[in-house]
Design a protein around this nucleic acid. Structure first.
Lengths: 196, 196
DNA sequence: TAATTAATATACCAATCGGTATATATTATA
DNA sequence: TATAATATATACCGATTGGTATATTAATTA
């Protein structure tokens, strides 16, 4: 890893929470400079423009939560327990340090859907990969006879994602975990209901 | 209605879709000027700053969808039919002209939760009024024996809202109605399930 | 160690940001 | 119709925006 590559990584790590809280339009180069302690020359020596930093910051933010969930899922062997990781995790959303700045998919989607095609594409792909991961787990669960055969994997995963994202939005803006507790209780029941 | 009051209304009507698409940080005074055809002097003669326009634009956007739903609900007499207005409406979210710019609560919440206390407060209040309205309908439904007595009005309304907001986020960023159809089918079943 | 390359800092650019003071229209009132 | 009050336009303000050219420093290689 060259010095430049280290600096690139450093810049992305330091700025990704800023992009997630303030958004693309709300994050300025001054924000990037003061977060990294670097000057404009150093930033533009490593990235071609603000866009490139923002896109990589999104990848970083999404990658972080994706691997966090992936590791928690890997611990369990039964599919139902793997799925239960979601309500368990998002119930504590407001208290998970690196999620303080919010869900990157939610934040990026709502800002970029009408304004930033490249960020929009990133968010869409992230949603799709999450959905496919869920669907796969459910399908495996059906094959292993741990999940009812009549379960519609696509539908179930989409509903799970919608509940989580809608609840996170409300919890973040109100600052209260009430919505998360109510919805994650419900999601937990939904998951246990498809158990064989 | 004085001339100034007319102009104020005119400015808010013309700029509210812009604030909803581009966000607070992403909407500039030049955007406001070109949307209204007015000059800076005229805008600052009627509003004290950009904040005031943004806050009223949010009220306008939320008021529009709230009254749209309210009118549709008023048509029905049975509570279940009133509740079914939500899945019916949000199923076509992407095709309702004045909702093209997205859900104001969703957009404002995700941008303002960490950046703009006043807008954040507006979004929180809007969520609360929506939730209370739903809860009231359900309680009336229970009293009228149209809804099962064991239904938890708070839980049900929160879950309904989460599903809708999560689905709208996904539909807007992907540009596809698939998620809306799947989730609104599910919501419809949920509503019919609490019918007495 | 000297020369070369890579990485960072400095100083600047035009354009745009939100906002204001003042001049000019426009409207309402006497 | 003359006057007063309101409303809009013009012209400007300093600060900040994203971005660049060049100078300087640090790291690597010969």
């Amino acid at each position: 890893m060259s010095k430049a590559e280290k600096t690139r990584q450093f810049i992305i790590e330091k700025t990704s929470p800023i992009f997630n809280t303030k958004g693309y339009a709300g994050t300025s180069l001054n924000d990037i400079m003061s977060a990294t302690g670097l000057t404009k020359g150093s930033i533009y020596g490593n990235f071609k423009n603000k866009d490139e930093v923002a896109l990589l910051a999104f990848d970083h933010n999404f990658g972080k939560i994706a691997s966090y969930i992936r590791e928690k899922i890997a611990v369990h062997s039964r599919i139902i327990d793997k799925l239960l990781v979601y309500p368990e995790t998002y119930r504590n959303f407001l208290n998970i340090p690196f999620l303080k700045s919010g869900c990157p998919i939610l934040n990026t989607s709502t800002e970029a859907d009408d304004t930033h095609p490249m960020l929009r594409k990133k968010a869409t792909k992230a949603l799709n990969s999450w959905q496919l991961s869920l669907e796969k787990h459910i399908q495996i669960g059906i094959e292993k006879k741990e999940i009812k055969a009549e379960t519609n994997a696509l539908e179930f995963s989409i509903i799970l994602m919608s509940i989580i994202e809608g609840a996170v939005m409300q919890a973040k803006v109100t600052g209260s975990s009430t919505v998360l507790n109510i919805t994650m209780d419900f999601l937990e029941k939904m998951i246990r209901d498809i158990a064989q």
